[in-house]
């Protein structure tokens, strides 16, 4: 079953076409890499898929809902974590999770259990009452991810989730992603780290608002005739 179906999605800002007629599907439980150079239109596409931005034309079904008419329902069923760390620095770890959990209408008692559970999984139980400000960046990113999936969304959008963190934390982060995907959650992730792209089930490469390439990492390497996704990317973004 597909959890994301994008058909001829287009977004124009005046004369500028940010996203130009893109179409693709993402299956349930799939980890889909959404690659492209800066300014290729990834963020605009994600904004449209998450109901933040109205498309100029085309349609997209996300978690079974239409982005144009059912954006409210989409918001309930997706999680989002941005490239810039976006939890509140002056709230504690627990307060941050409590805030977002309450906004997603998780019942109070259950919310507390879920928070303690996910903190235990991150091995951050002891940090529950520390200000987010005072914990290292890598932990913050993991925490942001845990917060984004607290309400058990069907799809999680990760916008450059690992930028700026060290390789060990990146590895741990990808373990979290795999763990989450194995429970049937669909992951759409953008990244500039090409080794991470290799971890994805399938990837798409965007340039100038269109999807240039789409397939499994193996397929793409074979198609382009190179050994790494890094080379695939450089080849395709160059043209």
């Amino acid at each position: 079953m597909n959890s994301i179906e994008v058909e001829h999605l287009t977004k124009k800002f005046g004369d500028f076409i940010a996203v130009n007629d893109i179409s693709f599907q993402v299956k349930e439980g799939e980890i889909f890499g959404f690659l492209g150079a800066n300014g290729a239109g990834k963020t605009t596409a994600i904004k449209m898929m998450s109901g933040l931005l109205q498309p100029t034309s085309g349609t997209a079904m996300v978690a079974g809902y239409d982005v144009i008419t059912q954006s409210k329902l989409i918001k309930r069923n997706i999680g989002y974590m941005s490239q810039r760390f976006s939890l509140y620095n002056d709230l504690t770890v627990f307060e941050n999770m409590q805030l977002f959990g309450t906004i997603y209408k998780i019942p109070r008692r259950e919310l507390k259990d879920r928070i303690m559970d996910s903190l235990a999984r991150l091995d951050m139980t002891k940090q529950a009452n520390l200000l987010v400000n005072s914990i290292p960046l890598g932990w913050k990113q993991k925490l942001a991810f845990a917060t984004a999936i607290l309400h058990k969304p069907k799809i999680v959008f990760l916008d450059e989730p690992t930028s700026g963190v060290d390789p060990i934390v990146r590895r741990e982060f990808w373990n979290l992603i795999y763990e989450t995907a194995s429970t049937g959650v669909t992951i759409l992730v953008t990244t500039h780290y090409m080794d991470e792209a290799e971890y994805c089930h399938r990837i798409s490469i965007m340039a100038d608002g269109v999807i240039r390439l789409l397939g499994t990492p193996e397929e793409l390497k074979k198609q382009v005739g190179v050994n790494t996704i890094n080379d695939v990317f450089v080849e395709y973004v160059k043209h």
Partner: peptide, 13 residues
């Protein structure tokens, strides 16, 4: 500025 607004607006609140 900090991006938390976008975080809030992406939720159903």
């Amino acid at each position: 500025e900090t991006g938390t607004m976008r975080m809030l607006f992406i939720t159903p609140v």
